[in-house]
Amino acid sequence: MIRLNVFIQVGAEKRQEVVALSKELVAASLKDNGCVAYDLFESATRPDVLMICETWRDAESLSAHEQATHFTTLVPKIQELAAMKLEKFNF
């Protein structure tokens, strides 16, 4: 399995838009083949930090997700509005 923690840092003025785009990404990604879990979290201590936590069955599932229309459309929009940092774990 593969776990991705995607940290998103966004200013207050663009936060609502990033949250809306992220929720759209989560809803679509949960339907992807091989998606075990996909959720959006908000920091309790830093209002400028969000995190998407993803778990994938295997590398093939993750690769297909990264080529899906919802990913290739929504992720660039989020990247235009916020800084993103990725942590990847295999287990």
Rank of each mutant, 00 (worst) to 15 (best):
T45L: 07
V49E: 15
T69H: 11
V19H: 01
N90A: 14
M84T: 13
R46S: 12
T55M: 06
V18G: 03
M51Q: 02
T55H: 13
K88W: 04
T72Y: 08
L21H: 08
V10G: 01
L40P: 04
T45E: 11
D58V: 02
K31E: 15
S61M: 10
L4E: 03
E13I: 00
L86G: 02
F7W: 07
A83P: 02
R46V: 10
S22K: 00
E54Q: 12
A83V: 14
E80C: 10
I2H: 07
K31W: 00
M84C: 13
A12D: 14
L81M: 06
Q16N: 14
I8H: 09
T72K: 13
A64C: 02
K14V: 03
I8E: 02
N5A: 07
A83R: 08
E66Y: 03
V36D: 09
L25I: 08
H70Y: 10
K23H: 10
M51N: 05
H65Q: 06
A44D: 14
E87N: 14
V10R: 02
S22L: 02
A44Y: 08
L21D: 05
L86E: 03
C53V: 14
Y38K: 10
L81K: 01
E13V: 07
V19D: 00
K77Y: 03
K14C: 00
T72R: 15
L81C: 03
E17R: 11
E54V: 07
K77F: 01
A59H: 12
S29T: 15
H70C: 03
L50D: 00
Q79I: 09
K31D: 08
K85D: 13
H70E: 09
T45P: 02
K88S: 13
L86R: 11
T55Y: 07
F89K: 06
L25A: 06
Q67N: 15
T69F: 04
G34M: 06
K14M: 00
S63W: 11
K23L: 15
A20Y: 00
A59S: 11
L25C: 06
F41P: 00
K23T: 09
P47A: 11
I52V: 15
M51G: 03
A68W: 10
W56P: 01
Q16I: 04
C35V: 07
P76W: 04
D39S: 14
I2F: 12
T69N: 12
E87M: 13
